[in-house]
Computed example of a mutant assay.
Amino acid sequence: MSDSQLNDTESSVITTKSIVTDPATAPDMGLYSQAVTSIATSFIGIIGLILLLGWLVKRFGWKKNADNLIDVKASYIINPKERIILVHVDNQLLVIGVTAQQMTLLHTISEERSQLILSQEKNIKSDVKNSLFRQILQSTLKSRKE
């Protein structure tokens, strides 16, 4: 290797070292960390907002008031995995037991009785949800005894 080639190699190494170690040309790490913090905070804020909106929709419901063929009129929770629901289908009320594995028809209320019960439902205050179910269940039990 000639002296001129060696000097060129040494000067390029020195130049490279001076660029890396020169604080005037090094990127500002404080500015970089501020940008990363700002992006991370925005990302966490957006994810939090999405979760909050999802919870609000689930909590307060987003129910259309269209006439459906199947309408759940009342529900009574026995435990987290079991419940009894009252479903209005084809002018009849069906009492259905629901578990994690299956749904079982417990009782069918005839058209005449369902019309009577549903007309009473309009007179009941909306903030007493389970009282309607309790009244229907008690009237059904009374009619079975008779």
Results as ranks from 00 to 15, higher is better:
residue 1 M to S: 13
residue 2 S to R: 01
residue 3 D to K: 03
residue 4 S to H: 08
residue 5 Q to K: 12
residue 6 L to N: 15
residue 6 L to Y: 09
residue 6 L to W: 09
residue 7 N to E: 13
residue 7 N to I: 13
residue 9 T to D: 10
residue 9 T to Q: 11
residue 10 E to H: 14
residue 18 S to D: 03
residue 18 S to E: 02
residue 23 P to K: 05
residue 24 A to P: 00
residue 25 T to R: 05
residue 26 A to W: 05
residue 28 D to R: 01
residue 28 D to E: 00
residue 30 G to A: 03
residue 34 Q to G: 00
residue 35 A to S: 03
residue 35 A to Y: 11
residue 36 V to A: 08
residue 36 V to D: 06
residue 40 A to F: 06
residue 41 T to S: 15
residue 48 G to H: 02
residue 49 L to I: 12
residue 50 I to D: 07
residue 51 L to C: 11
residue 52 L to R: 12
residue 52 L to D: 10
residue 53 L to R: 10
residue 61 G to S: 09
residue 62 W to G: 15
residue 62 W to M: 15
residue 63 K to F: 14
residue 65 N to M: 15
residue 66 A to I: 10
residue 71 D to G: 04
residue 78 I to D: 15
residue 80 P to Q: 14
residue 84 I to A: 04
residue 85 I to C: 02
residue 85 I to E: 02
residue 90 D to M: 13
residue 93 L to H: 09
residue 95 V to A: 00
residue 96 I to M: 01
residue 96 I to E: 05
residue 97 G to F: 09
residue 98 V to N: 06
residue 100 A to W: 13
residue 103 M to E: 13
residue 104 T to A: 03
residue 105 L to C: 01
residue 106 L to R: 00
residue 109 I to M: 10
residue 110 S to C: 08
residue 111 E to G: 12
residue 111 E to K: 15
residue 117 I to Q: 06
residue 117 I to L: 05
residue 118 L to A: 01
residue 118 L to V: 00
residue 119 S to L: 04
residue 120 Q to E: 06
residue 122 K to T: 14
residue 123 N to K: 11
residue 126 S to C: 14
residue 128 V to M: 09
residue 130 N to A: 07
residue 131 S to Y: 04
residue 131 S to R: 06
residue 131 S to A: 00
residue 131 S to Q: 05
residue 133 F to C: 02
residue 133 F to R: 02
residue 134 R to P: 09
residue 134 R to N: 11
residue 135 Q to L: 09
residue 135 Q to P: 00
residue 139 S to K: 05
residue 139 S to F: 06
residue 139 S to T: 08
residue 145 K to V: 05
residue 146 E to W: 12
residue 146 E to F: 08
